[in-house]
């Protein structure tokens, strides 16, 4: 079987950026929102939050 062509160095190659986000209001309701608000207020990432 033919291998996919890979002319780039390393295993990762960037072509584009993500599209501009839209700013919307989250509904401040439910356990997942409260976890999100906690992370945002303490400036934590997911993995930091997982460890706590």
């Amino acid at each position: 079987p033919a291998e996919p062509e890979w002319p780039h160095e390393g295993g990762f190659h960037i072509l584009e950026h993500l599209s501009e986000p839209t700013h919307r209001n989250l509904e401040p309701v439910g356990p997942h929102y409260l976890a999100h608000a906690r992370r945002k207020r303490h400036h934590r990432t997911f993995s930091e939050d997982d460890r706590i």
Binding site: A2, L18, S19, P21, T22, H23, R24, P28
Partner: peptide, 27 residues
């Protein structure tokens, strides 16, 4: 009050779905 404040609720949302396409090998 802090958790429900707009500073926390206003959040960037992705305009498009993001996913992964895995190229099916030839053959």
């Amino acid at each position: 009050e802090q958790s429900t404040h707009p500073a926390v609720t206003v959040t960037p949302h992705l305009p498009k779905p993001i996913g992964v396409a895995i190229h099916s090998p030839e053959g």
